[in-house]
Amino acid sequence: MTTIADRLANAHLRIAQAAQISSRDSEEIKLLAVSKTKPISQILAAYHAGQRLFGENYVQEGELKIIELRPSCPDIEWHFIGPLQSNKTKIIAEHFDWMHTLSREKIAKRLNDQRPEALMPLKVCIQVNISAEQSKSGIPPQELMSLARVINALPRIELRGLMAIPTATDDIAIQRREFAQMKVLFDQLRNVYPSVDTLSMGMSNDLEIAIDAGTTMVRIGTAIFGSRN
């Protein structure tokens, strides 16, 4: 029976192999373990296997996990990667280290105003709806620079990059095209804002293509923790 430690090691191996094929340094690519719906025991199993970056999709669930684990695991870096309503920004601002799904000026200003002075600025990624699907969150590419300017002017949040969820398809050509479009946007943003260093894209089923396209952070859940509860 494979353990979470085994699956985590395999995920790192996939990243290393994909990086080698793409002539990239695997150290440039971070693994974000997506622990939504998973119990504390499984997060601890990954933690004791060396994992430190964890992603949560649900506000209250993430808050409870952080409160429980922060005293004993203070070096966990908590990333919020789900949709966020404006009435729940305070929880993200007070508890999380990163927020990947920022796509509205109103949310940016609320996160900034609610971020405690005692904490480092909240690191944020702008979510881009690269597939132009109405069912998905994120801004259209042409609005990226406008939102980036707003974020850059806010002192309690820090613009670090972009995040995308491309079309759910087995068509590799579509995957490659959308990942490549994200890399172009990322490079454009990075040329303007020196703090930008994170391109969050690629998951369990497409991480190799994302790495070839230039991602710096892959979000892996199923391949580490198994199917969603």
Score class of each variant (00 low, 15 high):
Ile126Lys: 00
Asn57Gly: 03
Lys65Thr: 02
Trp98Ile: 01
Asn10Asp: 12
Ile107Gly: 00
Arg228Pro: 02
Lys123Met: 06
Asn205Cys: 10
Ile220Val: 13
Tyr193Lys: 04
Thr37Leu: 07
Glu208Cys: 07
Leu111Pro: 01
Val184Pro: 04
Ser41Gln: 10
Leu185Glu: 08
Thr198Val: 09
Asp212Trp: 13
Ile92Glu: 00
Met120Ile: 10
Arg219Leu: 09
Phe80Thr: 00
Ile107Pro: 00
Ala5Asn: 07
Asp25Cys: 15
Ala33Leu: 04
Leu154Val: 02
Gly62Thr: 06
Asp25Trp: 14
Val124Lys: 00
Arg219Trp: 04
Asn152His: 09
Glu68Cys: 11
Val128Ser: 01
Asp97His: 05
Thr169Asn: 05
Met145Cys: 14
Met182Leu: 13
Pro141Gln: 08
Ala168Leu: 14
Leu31Asn: 09
Pro83Glu: 10
Ala18Gln: 12
Asp113Lys: 13
Ser204Trp: 03
Thr2Phe: 13
His79Asp: 00
Phe96Lys: 00
Arg70Thr: 15
Asn152Met: 09
Ser135Ala: 13
Thr101Glu: 00
Thr198Pro: 06
Gln114Phe: 12
Arg190Gly: 10
Thr101Lys: 00
Val192Trp: 08
Leu64Cys: 08
Ala108Phe: 03
Asp170Gly: 08
Leu122Gln: 05
Ala93Asn: 02
Ser137Val: 11
Pro74Met: 11
Leu102Lys: 00
Lys38Asn: 09
Glu143Ile: 08
Ser195Pro: 12
Glu61His: 08
Leu199Arg: 03
Ile165Asn: 02
Asp113Trp: 12
Arg104His: 15
Glu117Gly: 14
Asp113Gln: 14
Ala118Trp: 10
Gln51Ala: 05
Arg7Asn: 09
Thr3Cys: 13
Leu64Pro: 06
Gly214Lys: 05
Leu159His: 03
Arg115Asn: 07
Ile76Gly: 06
Lys36Thr: 05
Met99Phe: 09
Ala49His: 11
Asp197Pro: 14
Ile4Thr: 05
Leu119Gln: 12
Asp170Asn: 11
Thr215Asp: 02
Glu77Lys: 15
Ile92Leu: 04
